[in-house]
């Protein structure tokens, strides 16, 4: 729409917008996170929702204990191999559109515990992550920055076209593989389809063909 016309109309008290903008504005202004803490980062997540940092300013103060009522999962803490199936299952239970913030070093890559035998090296192996925030734990300001980043991301989403988000594309999956304990490790070790999107630009990286073959034990 012509910007000058839009401004002229708004001076007359007539506000014009597109359905897309209105839809995105509504969604990004009332993101309901899941009450879901895994470890240390969860304490900072609680601190963010308290009076001093006041996450309510971004429309995200309604923490819901049930995944059916939430549309944002903040993976706040170390995901162990015992907990990973539950995290993915909770994500699958959330209704679309849904978003994920990986909070802290552990959720991104395993962090300081990466060398541990029981620690998952990043939750983005199993579920798509929208915003990563580094830190151990990230400060409340960092979590608020992640929120603002997520809001910008929601604002830029289009309702139609090839780059429309997953929830508007009937062919895209809304459920992801729930890993199970195998003989040695989690099976599968990663969601190959998802992992390839992240790593396709890294030459000989973890997303290349050889890496996708199952482990020979």
């Amino acid at each position: 729409m012509d910007l000058e016309l839009k401004e002229a109309l708004s001076r007359q008290g007539i506000f014009t917008t597109t359905l897309e903008e209105l839809y995105n504005w509504g969604r990004r202004s009332s993101v309901w996170p899941l009450t879901f803490g895994l470890a240390c980062c969860a304490i900072e997540m609680i601190a963010t929702s308290m009076a001093r940092y006041d996450l309510a300013r971004f429309g995200a103060e309604v923490f819901r204990p049930s995944p059916r009522q939430a549309d944002l999962m903040i993976v706040a803490g170390t995901v162990t191999k015992k907990m990973a199936p539950q995290v993915v299952r909770l994500y699958n239970q959330m209704p679309e559109p849904k978003y994920v913030i990986a909070m802290g070093a552990c959720a991104i890559s395993g962090g300081p515990f990466k060398q541990g035998y029981n620690v998952l090296k990043g939750i983005d192996r199993y579920i798509p992550v929208d915003v990563h925030i580094p830190g151990c734990p990230p400060r409340p300001e960092a979590l608020m920055d992640a929120f603002i980043t997520l809001q910008k991301k929601i604002d830029a989403q289009s309702l139609t076209g090839a780059d429309r988000p997953r929830h508007l594309n009937a062919e895209e999956p809304s459920e992801f593989i729930v890993p199970q304990y195998g003989a040695h490790d989690l099976e599968p070790p990663k969601n190959v389809k998802l992992w390839n999107i992240i790593t396709k630009n890294i030459p000989n990286g973890p997303g290349t063909a050889s890496d996708n073959e199952p482990r020979k034990d």
Partner: peptide, 8 residues
């Protein structure tokens, strides 16, 4: 227990 066993 064990959901947060981080091999400390």
């Amino acid at each position: 227990f064990g959901y947060l066993h981080r091999n400390h």
